[in-house]
Simulated scan of single mutants.
Amino acid sequence: MLPAHFRMSSAADFQSVMRQGTRSGRPTLIVYLKQTGNAQSMAGFAVSRAVGGAVIRNRVKRRLRAIMADLLPTLPDGTAVVIRALPKSASSDYQALCRDVKDAVAAAQRKAVLA
């Protein structure tokens, strides 16, 4: 489980990462990544009603939080990540979702280095 102090909660933080960060997409999700000046890395999740009902959305969020709990410590300090789940994420199994998150984060990191 991703500890609360690593979770992004401010709407301004979400907007900043989504507007100014690099973007990488997969069929199940879109990852936005931005290097901030903060000492710790953070992750935020956007799961809309298009994904499904409340039970489905909460399952997707729990899966994404578990994936990021493992992935966030491997990222450089000060990395902010927002994951926007797409409707296909509701029918995706955990391993496929994990693979998509890791691939998208790696692609966004490469884009951030090139920018």
Rank of each mutant, 00 (worst) to 15 (best):
R26Y: 02
P3G: 11
A54W: 10
F6T: 05
R49P: 03
M8Y: 00
V113M: 15
V51Y: 05
V81L: 10
R26V: 05
R57Y: 11
V113N: 09
V82P: 01
V105W: 03
G53H: 13
S89P: 00
T74Q: 15
N38D: 15
S10K: 14
L114W: 09
G78H: 06
R26A: 14
M68A: 08
R84Q: 14
A96V: 14
A39Q: 15
M1H: 15
V55N: 11
A4I: 06
R110C: 13
V82C: 08
K111P: 00
A106C: 08
R49C: 04
R19A: 12
F45C: 03
V81N: 05
P73D: 13
V51W: 02
D93N: 15
V81T: 03
R49S: 13
C98R: 15
V17W: 00
T36S: 14
A66T: 12
F45Y: 01
A104P: 07
A115Q: 14
M68W: 03
M8V: 00
V101R: 00
K61E: 08
F14H: 05
I67L: 10
M18I: 01
S10Y: 01
S9P: 00
D77V: 13
Y32K: 02
N58F: 11
D70Y: 09
S91I: 14
S9M: 11
L71M: 12
A43W: 00
F45L: 06
L29A: 08
L33G: 04
D77M: 12
P73T: 12
L75N: 09
G37M: 07
P27H: 09
V47A: 07
A80R: 00
R57H: 10
S41W: 00
A85F: 03
T28D: 06
G44N: 04
P3R: 14
F45I: 00
A112I: 01
Q40Y: 10
M8W: 02
M18G: 05
G21S: 04
G44A: 04
S92R: 07
I67S: 04
N38G: 14
G21A: 04
S48H: 09
V82T: 00
G44C: 04
D13E: 13
A4D: 12
G25P: 05
A50V: 08
Y94M: 12
V60N: 02
P73Q: 10
F45K: 01
A90V: 07
T22V: 09
G53P: 10
L97G: 02
N58K: 12
A107E: 11
K34H: 13
F14Q: 02
L71D: 09
P27Q: 07
V51D: 05
G44S: 05
N38P: 02
R62D: 11
K34W: 06
A85Q: 03
S9H: 14
K88Y: 05
S92M: 07
I83D: 02
A107F: 01
A107K: 11
Y32N: 03
M68F: 04
K34Y: 07
A108Q: 03
M8R: 02
V101A: 06
T79R: 02
Q15W: 04
L2H: 08
L72N: 07
R59K: 15
